[in-house]
Design a protein around this nucleic acid. Sequence first.
DNA 1: TTCGATACCGCAAACGATTGCATAAATTAA
DNA 2: TTAATTTATGCAATCGTTTGCGGTATCGAA
Lengths: 337, 337
Amino acid sequence: MRRSQITIKDIARRLSVSSSTVSRALRNHPDISIKTKKQVLCIASEFNYQPNGIAQSLKNMRTNTIGVIVPEIKHDFFPTALDGIEDVTYKAGYTIIVCKSNESYGREVLNTRALASNRIAGLIVSISQDTQNFDHFKSLINQNIPIVFFDRACNEIDSSKVLVDDFEGAFSAVNHLIERGYKRIAHLAGPKHLSISQSRLNGYLTALNKHNLPLRDELIIHGGLHRIDGRTGVKRLLTLEKRPDAIFAVNGPVQFGAFMQIKGEGYKIPEEIGIIGFSDDPISSLVDPPLSTVGQPAYEMGAAAANLLLEEINHKEDFFEPKIQILKTKLIIRQSS
Amino acid sequence: MRRSQITIKDIARRLSVSSSTVSRALRNHPDISIKTKKQVLCIASEFNYQPNGIAQSLKNMRTNTIGVIVPEIKHDFFPTALDGIEDVTYKAGYTIIVCKSNESYGREVLNTRALASNRIAGLIVSISQDTQNFDHFKSLINQNIPIVFFDRACNEIDSSKVLVDDFEGAFSAVNHLIERGYKRIAHLAGPKHLSISQSRLNGYLTALNKHNLPLRDELIIHGGLHRIDGRTGVKRLLTLEKRPDAIFAVNGPVQFGAFMQIKGEGYKIPEEIGIIGFSDDPISSLVDPPLSTVGQPAYEMGAAAANLLLEEINHKEDFFEPKIQILKTKLIIRQSS
DNA sequence: TTCGATACCGCAAACGATTGCATAAATTAA
DNA sequence: TTAATTTATGCAATCGTTTGCGGTATCGAA
């Protein structure tokens, strides 16, 4: 026969006491005799009792689980950020549930609902490239489940956020390209509605402007945040009458796609085309040539987001003033620029 | 004031009916009048009712959640396997909870307990490199929570498993090195207690034997499965009086570590030292030189594991005969060998 | 001996959803 | 009109754990 996990009642029956007593013995309640407590603990360990977390959550109206939604985990940035989140939350006694949205709005909504129905204590999220409607997050906030965004945030929602200085990072990257002598610098930009796309585009524009370089619309290509978007972007750029001599990519995957495509078409990097990206995947330094990039403190971003969330979860008063934390990027110059 | 999610009772009160009626209306029970059902659905959507998943799980004594424990997600293999798991389980209406053990036994035990206490419907796991005791898994099985292992399995436990033909893959890799003319072939092996380490070592030994090459103990280095283990392994190999002319690494991360170390010390690949590994990370083809490797069907392994688990979850009878599925590897020859 | 304090324990009601059974109302058949 | 049947609903228990409240029993002090 299928036997399942033993419960507090089973222990109670065995010792001829009430389940209240067992519960109190297990939870170190003072109103319990040493003798009874010992007996309970003894039986509990003998039968390998483990409390039913579901019942506890139901009773307590809350869980010790923190939900995390990230767009993907195939590049280094999000796994590293997850490490930061994990280290902080585990120390505080929480477990995390990691969901991937796969850069899809629909999947993000499903994930959010599933997490809400499991009554997570809070949510840490970096939105998908397709997300333009934020009702699923607002609904969580209405249920008093706090949210912290990191990297890709939502402007419409007044919650805590952890960002990097996207403008400054982009500016310094493009500035660097210009100082190296590149003149026709293209930008593989992200979806227009994402604030990271906007800030990074602004950094690009400002750098061009500072050096009195003309702004050419055909050199700015808006696309997604996947590797494939880097490839298709480069394909288009290379069919232009006058091809660009350098490329600034909005993020790591796009930079890789661009890199692969440029290499595949036989152009020399950095002589014929220079390239620089955003986010420092370790593989950047392993490819040929090693790629220049704007390094983001992924681990620190995750940790910071987790700390902000815990702060909000533990906040007693009715109103919590959201905090926005902006971390610095770091220009890493290798041999692709 | 903090308001929280509305419940079945709230809807019932509002319509002056019992909560049973509301529940039945929401669950499409036949014994309900069309009029009442409409009213209920109307109120439910008006207030954005979402069932409390915890309460449902408690009542049903099971969840729609499948737990997954993987050692890491920083290399391509496990994220890709997760894609396979996800695609299959989502289609079947399950959500997955992904946990990382970070290759640590202690973390694996914690994860297993947390998942058990959340009464997952089943567990898919690839064990950590440090795991030698399997009581935490046996305990799950005692609670009737089915487990499927993939890639790194546990021999002691009689459950379903999805593996690759490690012996054959290793054999063909080393055979290939020998045919290329390499004579002193080292093996950066995994922890001795893991069956993948054993099978891959056996493949290595058999290939040497087939070609009458001597077995040299100093060329077999047992270590962990991290990148760092590849680096330290190579360091040791390069201090030998007669250094090896080729290296077969037990997995992807170790291969990368080895690759980086060899390059760092200035040896030419593949002329001075050839290298081949196990598992096909996309970055293998991007580095210089592109790396030869034994490709594993990561996505298919994940999907197969998920299918086996679903089969067992849906199995009605008392006893389920575990199935072991062995997938083929594929030798991918690039320029490092 | 009696009163008060303390220590220990059980009862029962929650938490939210589900479901077998009973019951009331409405409908049909006789 | 009455009996039999169908339809729609409510009651109450259940899942496992927690907890406020009340009740004994024990002990010390007066």
